[in-house]
Structures are given as structure tokens and as C-alpha cells.
Computed example of a mutant assay.
Amino acid sequence: MKRVAETMLEPTRRIFILRTGQLGLGLVLGAAGAQRARATPDMMRQLVDEITGGKPMTKGKVTLDLPPLVDNGNTVPMTVSVDSPMTDDNYVRVIHVVNEKNPQPDVITCTMGPRCGRASFATRIKLADSQKITAVAEMNDGSFWFDNADVIVTLAACLEDIL
């Protein structure tokens, strides 16, 4: 007579079908959950409203430099600069970069001050899909300035969220 432990380790057709079904169900539910976890244009607008506290933004002063077409969304070069003298009387407090379709709408937040010398930074970001990117600069006087860039991505990053 076989022991219970031995029969549990023997592969049977019934166990194989059961485990394959469980794996398939897990993949389907995981993909459905990942789709819900993506940011939307409404989430981006909500985040911008939280950043500005509902104050109006003015286009200008901020330059958001991204390539308009990228082959791979895994490493997209981005430069943000703000036209500011960066003196004690006139400087950039914070620069926020937000997006529409990545898993989270907040890309990066850089805190600055008059001792920075220049209000600019360069980095590489991931983009999950073709989308609009927005940079918002908060000045020391409480005003908000922004710039937008539309980027077309041919091979999306963040694919682990889709699988």
C-alpha cells in the first residue's frame, strides 16, 4: 500500500490539469489587475491640481525636452529647465514631472532653492506607452509655470504590469 506522501508527489493527469488551470487563472487575474493599476489622464489632472492647490498655471518659463519619437520606452532621456535667475528673491522651489499612462502619474519631483545656481536637471525615465508628459515648476512667489511634451513610444516599457 502506498503512503499518502508518495501519492501526492506522483504526477497525475487530474493534478496537471488543476495546476495548469490555476496558473492560467492567476495570469488572467494578474493582467486584469495590472490594467487597473495604470494612470489615466484624469489621474494626471488630479495630481496637477493637488500640486498647484487649484491655482492657475501659466505656460512658459519651463522647458521640457523629450524626444518626440522613441524606439524603446525603457530609457527615455529627459531634460527640464526653468528660466529663473535663482536668486534669493526669485527662484524655483520645486519641479514636478507627471504623465498620463505610466503605472503611477508622478514621474519625479525635484526640490530646488536659490543656492542651486541653475533650475535644471537631466535624467532618463520609463514610459509605458505613447503619452503626454507635463513639467510643473513652483516659484518662490507661489506662481506655477508648466510645459508639455507628447512622446510616441514604439516599444513600451513597464510591460511587467501588462503580463
Rank of each mutant, 00 (worst) to 15 (best):
R3P: 00
T109W: 04
T154D: 07
E10V: 11
N72Y: 10
V62Q: 03
R19C: 08
K101T: 01
A128H: 06
A135P: 03
L159Q: 15
M78C: 09
L69H: 12
N99I: 00
G142F: 10
P114M: 03
E100V: 00
S130Y: 05
L64C: 02
N74A: 12
A157P: 00
V28T: 14
T134H: 04
T154E: 12
H96A: 05
L29M: 13
A137M: 08
Q46K: 09
S120K: 12
N74K: 11
A156D: 11
P103S: 14
L159G: 11
R19W: 08
T7V: 13
G30K: 10
L29K: 08
G33F: 05
P11M: 14
A157G: 14
K101F: 09
V151G: 03
Q46P: 00
S143W: 04
C110F: 08
T63Y: 06
T75S: 05
S81Q: 13
V82D: 09
I162F: 12
V70Q: 03
R36A: 15
D150E: 14
H96R: 11
S130N: 09
T12Q: 10
F16L: 11
A156S: 13
C116W: 10
T154W: 05
L27T: 07
P85G: 06
T12F: 06
M44W: 00
I108K: 12
T52R: 03
R38N: 02
D161N: 10
M78D: 04
N99S: 13
L155R: 15
M8N: 04
T111G: 11
M8R: 15
Q22R: 06
S143F: 01
R14H: 12
R124T: 13
F16R: 12
T111D: 12
R3H: 07
V151T: 08
T75Q: 10
L18C: 03
V107A: 07
L127D: 01
K2I: 00
E160R: 10
E100P: 02
L66G: 02
V153K: 03
A119L: 04
I108F: 07
Q131K: 10
D161R: 06
I133S: 01
T7C: 07
M8A: 15
F144H: 01
G53W: 06
G113T: 04
